[in-house]
Design a binder for these strands. Structure first.
Ligand SMILES: NC(=O)c1ccc[n+]([C@@H]2O[C@H](COP(=O)([O-])OP(=O)(O)OC[C@H]3O[C@@H](n4cnc5c(N)ncnc54)[C@H](O)[C@@H]3O)[C@@H](O)[C@H]2O)c1
Ligand SMILES: NC(=O)c1ccc[n+]([C@@H]2O[C@H](COP(=O)([O-])OP(=O)(O)OC[C@H]3O[C@@H](n4cnc5c(N)ncnc54)[C@H](O)[C@@H]3O)[C@@H](O)[C@H]2O)c1
Lengths: 231, 231
DNA sequence: ATTATATTGTGAAATACGGAACAACAAATG
DNA sequence: CATTTGTTGTTCCGTATTTCACAATATAAT
């Protein structure tokens, strides 16, 4: 049976798994939909719906079995076993990511970084190589996912290189909006835009949780003269 | 007239504005919906719908006037004029953000960083202060937005402190899922989860653009025994 | 054993959202 | 001036997703 797993659902599943692993290491055995909902910030009903959709059953009173759920989620999401990523652009952000120790918990690690300037001192435990070596490295180590942290100007070129090397997933921190293709899935994180968004939410008032009511000019009124000016 | 601006729409508006400013500095005067759509990765029809919703008019043949649009977007989004943010947790990521020069283009800058360890050498041009000084700093400088880059363990405490200081917007890089409240809007960025998502998209095949078909067990078959095991 | 209680599972309703299509119309062309 | 062309503005539509509400039911309590 085929099911469509949309992106938001996948993200939730990954978060469920993460929480379940934490609970497991704390010795818990069962969990309720409202616990999981609280932990990842969604309504309990949605948690149940998600599991129901995947045929993951719980107990009418005792909640869900953590081992069972986590096992099933691994089967659905693909158990992250020794997976490796590379970082293209070992500048400020790239280096910070390379030094981060929290990725192991997610079942993956950074295998190497690439930069046009290999000579800079960087306190990282991974090799930092010139971009020319990227393609061979990717093929020899079967790398499929890359993080892109080069300057904006180099983004397009680097994406081209990564795709040619066979990279199938890119996490892009560059302000350039990179589009996914059938062979390469791209997720863009634009930190500056996120902060501008915070300013908007805040400026417009006391920052609501989801959306907001904004005062807009009427069609008549200010708008009319503006339209004249615009034409 | 009140309009609901949903989150995705606001993000698009911010991106439009960003592109418009770039085009303006290149000397362009007019732009078409498909140009903007390409630039931010959405369909042209959606661009027109967005502008239509906001009563931003174009010319039936000559497209949209860039100056006009960018002016109106500033009015709607709030012109980011000398806005300031703080960074709580000047470790690897926090320091990288503090050193980033690209924020000025978005109309804001980092005013200060806070860390329990002020003695570490950090090559940043902003002051790095102990957390005790945060509340006064926020009030004196009228800071409303903060970035949270402390260790996971300290996240909840720091959120509490930030809220008490009057912070109304938080960009959270911590793996802890922080919930928005009526007085404080939070956006969570979980890099590890995003990378796990890339692995999922990639593992399941050649990485499709939006969603994916996943093989799931039937209700009968494997599932039955699993349900027994689960109960 | 019976009753009470808490929690799941799910169908239906509500919403939100984006896409396609096309009429309206301004500009260009001849 | 008439015609062609290209782009906007808007309506309609389908679909995806979330919430609501409550029946079903497993466990706990007495
Ligand atoms: N640092 C931040 O806080 C921050 C915030 C938001 C967005 N960004 C974006 O992230 C990207 C990286 O930012 P940063 O601050 O780390 O910049 P950075 O200048 O510190 O690092 C960029 C690195 O990429 C290397 N590089 C340049 N061209 C390259 C190429 N063709 N191939 C491989 N490596 C190349 C440079 O040598 C440098 O080490 C930028 O696009 C920036 O806009 C950064
Ligand atoms: N570095 C990464 O690439 C990365 C990636 C994903 C997520 N994160 C998350 O971002 C956060 C920061 O990561 P990092 O790598 O920069 O960690 P880090 O340890 O380098 O930095 C954390 C900083 O916070 C300071 N700190 C600790 N407790 C504090 C408190 N109560 N108040 C103020 N400051 C305090 C520490 O002194 C340290 O300087 C972590 O939660 C991490 O999980 C980081």
């Amino acid at each position: 049976m085929k099911k469509r797993l949309n992106k938001e659902l996948v993200i939730r599943l990954i978060k469920y798994r993460r929480i379940l692993n934490q609970l497991k290491s704390l010795g818990f055995e069962r969990v309720f939909s409202n616990n999981l909902g609280d932990a990842i910030g969604v309504a309990p009903a949605l948690v149940r719906k998600d599991f129901s959709l995947l045929f993951l059953g719980g107990n009418k009173r005792g909640g869900y079995n953590i081992d069972y759920l986590s096992e099933k989620l691994d089967a659905i999401l693909g158990k992250a076993q020794n997976q490796k990523i590379i970082i293209m652009g070992m500048g400020k952000i790239g280096t910070a990511l390379a030094q981060y120790k929290g990725f192991v918990q997610g079942g993956f690690e950074v295998a190497a970084g690439f930069d046009i300037d290999v000579s800079l001192p960087r306190e990282v435990s991974i090799p930092v190589l010139p971009p020319e070596k990227m393609q061979d490295f990717v093929r020899e180590n079967n790398i499929r996912v890359a993080v892109l942290t080069v300057p904006e100007d180099s983004a397009a070129l680097c994406v081209k290189m990564l795709k040619e090397a066979g990279i199938q997933g890119i996490l892009n921190f560059t302000p350039v909006e990179i589009k996914s293709t059938p062979t390469c899935f791209v997720h863009n994180i634009n930190i500056a835009v996120e902060i501008e968004n915070l300013f908007f939410q805040v400026i417009k008032n006391g920052a609501p949780p989801e959306d907001w009511e904004t005062e807009l000019p009427d069609e008549e009124g200010i708008w009319e003269e503006e339209e004249a000016e615009n034409s």
